[in-house]
Simulated assay, not measured.
Amino acid sequence: MSRDLKDSQEEGKFMLEAREIADASEFKCFAYSPFFISFEQFVQILPQTLQSTGIALAAVFFVTCIFMPHPVLIIFVTITVTMIMAGVFGFLLYLDVALSSITMIELIMSIGFSIDFTAHICHGFMTSRCKTRDEKVRDAIDKTGSPIFHGAVSSLLGIIVLAAAKSYIFRTFAAVMGFVLFFGITHALLLLPVVLSWIGPMRSEDKTRPQLNATSGRNSPMEGLKAYEGL
Rank of each mutant, 00 (worst) to 15 (best):
A31K: 05
I169H: 11
R19K: 13
G87T: 02
M202Q: 13
H187P: 00
L212M: 15
V43S: 06
E229P: 00
M1Q: 09
M177A: 13
T215S: 10
V77S: 10
P221N: 05
S114A: 15
R3T: 08
R209Y: 01
M104G: 01
G178I: 14
V88F: 00
Q41C: 06
I160Q: 11
R129Q: 14
T208C: 12
L231D: 14
Y228P: 00
D116K: 06
F182R: 05
M83R: 14
S167T: 07
L196H: 03
F179T: 03
I105H: 03
L57T: 01
T103D: 04
H120E: 14
T144A: 15
Y32Q: 08
M15T: 09
P147S: 11
L95V: 07
A152Q: 06
L189I: 11
S33G: 04
S110L: 08
F27V: 15
D206R: 05
V72I: 11
F149R: 03
F183P: 01
M85R: 06
G124M: 07
F67Q: 06
L181M: 09
V161D: 01
S114W: 01
S25Y: 09
V63D: 02
G12N: 02
I75K: 12
R171K: 14
F42W: 10
D7H: 04
F149Q: 05
H120I: 11
L162N: 04
S216V: 05
H150Q: 09
F35Y: 11
H187N: 13
W198D: 11
L73E: 07
A163W: 07
R19P: 01
I75P: 01
F76H: 08
S2N: 10
H120D: 13
L162F: 15
A56L: 05
V72E: 02
V153I: 15
S25E: 09
V88N: 01
G87W: 00
L16P: 00
S167A: 14
L181K: 02
S146M: 08
D116T: 05
L5D: 07
Q48A: 09
E26P: 03
G151T: 11
I102L: 05
I185M: 15
F183E: 02
K13R: 13
F170I: 09
E11F: 05
I105P: 00
H120C: 12
L95C: 04
L191H: 04
T132P: 10
S25C: 13
P210D: 10
A86R: 05
G87Q: 02
L192P: 05
F76N: 03
P201E: 09
I121C: 03
I159C: 12
L107W: 04
S216A: 03
E20N: 10
V97Y: 01
L92E: 03
M109E: 08
G151I: 06
K13N: 11
T144L: 13
T49R: 10
F27M: 08
V63L: 05
F36V: 14
P193L: 10
S167D: 14
